Simulated assay, not measured.
Amino acid sequence: MTMGLGIDTYFEAQLVGRKDELRDLKAAWNKKLRMFGIFGMRSVGTSRLAKEFLASVSGQYDELVYVNLKETSDLAAMYVNICAQVTVSIESRPTDVKSWESMIVSAVSTRKTQYVFFFDNGEYFLDEGAETRDPLQDLVVALIKQNNIKIMITSSTTFQLASLCGLYHVCELQPLKPAETLELLRAETPGMDFGEYLKPIAELSEGLPRLIFMITSELRCDGGMLTPKDMAPLLAEYRLMVLSREFYPAKIELLTFTGSSSRA
């Protein structure tokens, strides 16, 4: 099976919780729904859940077209990326979005290939106004009308498509529950003695998997130079900055999509 630019099915960090969400996604998939939106606040794990789900159903589609909108500079870059993955030759670049849309849809709609188009980090286009939001929405609508295409989109901004409600499964992802937060903290720091600081660190992580992974990575780093006792006041002071969009450089991802053998 061809996986577009490659979906990494090796996950260095385990998925904790999310059993209900995975169950609901699989039920919607089995009901032949065509579009799947996973939405939630930044760092809650929407991308990871989507990747885990798509890996679990990978035998039921032929090709994944992965578009990370966080790393896509503009509309033209998005279209060129998609064309490269679906092997559409671009002899001369179209000058308008409708021509790009028509070229892509015409190419994939005539094939027997079963596609999943995965638009990751959708807020980077949805939050920038009509210039990027509307063309993305139009492309998704055009693609989903084809019988051989399913759509996955993740975002911190809900993607509203009332016209496709009968084909659309929406998953609103919440932070991990307290017990799940503790489970993930312990799983990512085997053998570590948190002492009295386990509960404060868990509470300050706010159930956000990405923040938990960052916390545990720092605690494991350099042989434990940063202790749970150190971590609690640091989190209290800096966690809001850590959760901001600006904190994450474009090239740093917990899970990468640069090839089948890539690791974070």
Score class of each variant (00 low, 15 high):
residue 178 P to N: 06
residue 145 K to E: 15
residue 97 V to P: 09
residue 249 P to S: 05
residue 102 S to E: 15
residue 172 E to K: 06
residue 140 V to R: 12
residue 87 T to F: 14
residue 149 I to Y: 07
residue 162 A to E: 14
residue 187 A to Y: 02
residue 183 E to I: 00
residue 135 P to F: 03
residue 22 L to K: 02
residue 109 S to E: 15
residue 111 R to G: 02
residue 50 A to N: 06
residue 263 R to I: 07
residue 125 F to T: 04
residue 262 S to T: 13
residue 225 M to K: 13
residue 263 R to C: 00
residue 105 V to D: 05
residue 1 M to E: 09
residue 23 R to F: 09
residue 35 M to D: 01
residue 36 F to T: 06
residue 158 T to Q: 13
residue 154 T to I: 06
residue 117 F to I: 11
residue 156 S to R: 15
residue 10 Y to T: 11
residue 45 G to I: 04
residue 62 D to E: 12
residue 76 A to C: 02
residue 111 R to A: 11
residue 138 D to H: 13
residue 170 V to E: 00
residue 210 R to P: 04
residue 224 G to H: 04
residue 66 Y to V: 00
residue 64 L to T: 01
residue 223 G to N: 06
residue 27 A to P: 00
residue 189 T to P: 08
residue 125 F to P: 08
residue 18 R to K: 01
residue 143 L to P: 04
residue 24 D to R: 10
residue 214 M to T: 15
residue 94 P to N: 03
residue 248 Y to L: 13
residue 146 Q to D: 08
residue 2 T to A: 14
residue 89 S to W: 13
residue 91 E to K: 15
residue 223 G to D: 03
residue 142 A to T: 01
residue 82 I to L: 02
residue 175 P to K: 09
residue 63 E to P: 01
residue 177 K to M: 10
residue 58 S to E: 15
residue 154 T to V: 08
residue 99 S to N: 13
residue 100 W to A: 05
residue 176 L to I: 03
residue 128 E to Q: 14
residue 195 G to D: 10
residue 208 L to H: 10
residue 248 Y to Q: 13
residue 249 P to A: 01
residue 113 T to Q: 05
residue 251 K to S: 07
residue 159 F to H: 02
residue 215 I to K: 11
residue 226 L to Q: 11
residue 50 A to F: 06
residue 75 L to M: 08
residue 259 G to Y: 04
residue 60 Q to V: 00
residue 122 G to K: 09
residue 165 C to T: 10
residue 45 G to P: 01
residue 160 Q to G: 00
residue 148 N to K: 06
